[in-house]
Amino acid sequence: MKRKISFTLNGSPVVVETDAARRAVDVLREDLGLTGTKEGCGSGECGACSILVDDVVKLSCIMTAAQLEGRRIVTIEGVGQDGELHPVQRSFVERGAIQCGFCTPGMVIAAVGFLKENPDPTREEIRAGLSGNICRCTGYEKIIDAVEDAAAKLRGGGSGG
């Protein structure tokens, strides 16, 4: 059933006309051209499709288009502001947390969401916070390093919220 769905995407209002049952990940990638949100499993097992829905990390591969209505959606393309990398992105680059990069957008989204809730985490808390995001390349260690580093940056910058 085609329907007009309005929501805020990376700070700007958008309206898409699409089937209500389509997956949010397909709307983002195919209709809106935001291919930074990846699909790795299609069943909520890998976290590659993570997006922020009203600041909360959710999995766009098991969300329907209808659920986007009225929400504030942030994808990897909207994490940084004014052309600057988000501190989490900066830390990922600096700490070597990126290999093939296919898990990276979802991992960054998960880390951004996690640090909003827990601005001063231990390594073990970071591990738990990212445990729904599968990375097959890195062995996670440098990703944990990066999130630890980003947490310090965000606290130091006074922009922890």
Binding site: I76, L85, V93, I98, G101
Partner: peptide
């Protein structure tokens, strides 16, 4: 230094084969 492909990957801009429509 950091990987040269890191920027395009961390911003979601890198287009993998799966990303082409």
């Amino acid at each position: 230094g950091p990987r040269l492909d890191a920027f395009s990957k961390v911003t979601g801009r890198e287009r993998y084969a799966a990303d082409e429509y």
